[in-house]
Amino acid sequence: MELKPGSRWKSAVCDTEVVVVRPPKAEASLECGGYPVIAHAEARPEGKAIAEGFTDGSQAGKRYADEETGMEVLCTKTGQGTLTIGGRPIGAKEAKKLPASD
């Protein structure tokens, strides 16, 4: 999967949707609910459920950042699966400083 800035993805097993804000520094795999995410335009496969242990959920409006790969995604739709990179959960970023305005 090519995780370019601005590219949109969704969970294969829950309602989660994300947009990539910062790409990973090297090839990485983004998963949600234990399965690789799928392109936003694709239809969800039927009959799959969130894998055990990946049910922490995601929250719309929060940024999820991974220090190791530098990747950041913004969750645009809340879901029940955990966002992970290569199986490693990525946490929601703490409140950020004000954006530059001038």
């Binding site: 947009v19 409006g61 645009t76 739709k77 004000l98 305005s101 001038d102």
Partner: peptide
């Protein structure tokens, strides 16, 4: 950024994630 001369520039900001949310939210 919204502001006036009389307020030393910015008094309110719509940030980057708000922009993206607005674009992609239902």
């Amino acid at each position: 950024a919204y502001g006036l001369t009389e307020t030393s520039s910015t008094i309110s900001i719509l940030g980057p994630d708000d922009h993206r949310m607005a674009l992609y939210s239902d």
